[in-house]
């Protein structure tokens, strides 16, 4: 249902993105041929006819052919998916690895100068737009120091069903800057979220009891307090991973990262409707899937939900 709605909204929007034909033919192509092409592609039908046609094919796993690249959309997305997924997962991992300890630390040592420093940093991270962070990184590490490649994925290893940059040095080098760029916003979000939740939990009665029982501070913070902050945090993080995949668009276009986001943004520019519709549908699917996983995870973390 969600996906059907997304598809319908997407199709309604496609009426306003412009004319695909002008990008598909050269300037010497006659008007009659242009009209014929439009007719052949089914662009003259009403939006509902077009939508019905699309849904019928999509159910069978057929998304048509890209107007611009003239390859099946399914193939194009399959080619690009690994790049986006590797980038998103690495930055999610980075964000969690750095964000959770920082969040816990800032909650426990609220007044230390280091915690204050972290909070200032997270404020900067949350307010700087992604493309600016990316450009700064490129300028500093790519152009001035020349340590890291400024664009692309480096050498990738093709495993047949998957292409990965994790197995080569240039692949890792290429990953660093885009992953950091993408991770910073998520990281700062996690820091602030964990800190706020922790402060709340630390004030609650059972923590006071735990202290009264003389448990070690470390075990209170990590096994009692942190565990209880995780439920809302997981919801947010789950959705954030979805948005990492969906909104890698900006990072991907700054770093010319050959993922789905770049494919999508180029599709918008050239009015490549088959790619746009398939991409939006896929993202809707990812969000549905993540919501499901998050719901299942609640059960694993919160024993109260398992009672009935």
């Amino acid at each position: 249902m969600v996906m059907l709605t997304v598809a319908l909204i997407a199709f309604a929007m496609f009426q306003f993105v412009g004319d695909p034909i002008a990008n598909m033919v050269g300037q010497d192509t006659s008007l009659a041929e242009r009209e014929q092409l439009k007719e052949d592609l089914g662009l003259n039908g009403s939006i509902f006819t077009q939508f019905g046609h699309f849904v019928k094919n999509a159910v069978q796993g057929e998304f048509g052919r890209s107007y611009r690249l003239r390859k099946p959309v399914r193939e194009l997305i399959a080619e690009r998916f690994p790049a986006t997924l590797e980038l998103s997962l690495l930055s999610a991992f980075l964000a969690l690895l750095v964000g959770i300890p920082m969040g816990v630390f800032t909650a426990l040592r609220r007044d230390s100068w280091l915690a204050q420093g972290f909070m200032t940093l997270s404020l900067i991270g949350i307010s700087l737009p992604t493309f600016l962070i990316g450009i700064f990184l490129i300028l500093f590490f790519g152009v001035m120091l020349q340590w890291l490649p400024t664009f692309g994925r480096g050498d990738v290893v093709d495993l047949g069903w998957w292409t990965t940059g994790f197995l080569t040095i240039s692949g890792w080098k290429s990953l660093i800057m885009p992953a950091i760029t993408l991770a910073i916003f998520q990281m700062t979000l996690i820091v602030r979220l964990i800190r706020a939740e922790m402060l709340e939990v630390l004030r609650s009665d059972y923590i006071k009891f735990a202290r009264a029982r003389g448990l070690r501070e470390r075990s209170i913070s990590f096994s009692h307090a942190l565990k209880n902050t995780l439920v809302p945090v997981i919801t947010i993080i789950g959705l954030q991973i979805g948005s990492l995949i969906a909104f890698a668009i900006i990072t991907e276009s700054v770093f010319q990262w050959p993922g789905m986001g770049l494919l999508f943004i180029q599709a918008i520019e050239e009015v490549d409707i088959p790619i746009m519709s398939a991409y939006l549908l896929l993202i809707a699917f990812v969000f549905v899937l993540i919501n499901l996983v998050v719901d299942v995870l609640y059960y694993a973390i919160d024993p109260r939900l398992r009672m009935d």
Partner: peptide
């Protein structure tokens, strides 16, 4: 040949020697 869409990224790729 690599297509690079963003002008800033394109120029940076030249400046960084790649």
């Amino acid at each position: 040949f690599t297509p690079i869409k963003q002008a800033a990224t394109r120029v940076a790729a030249l400046l960084s020697g790649q």
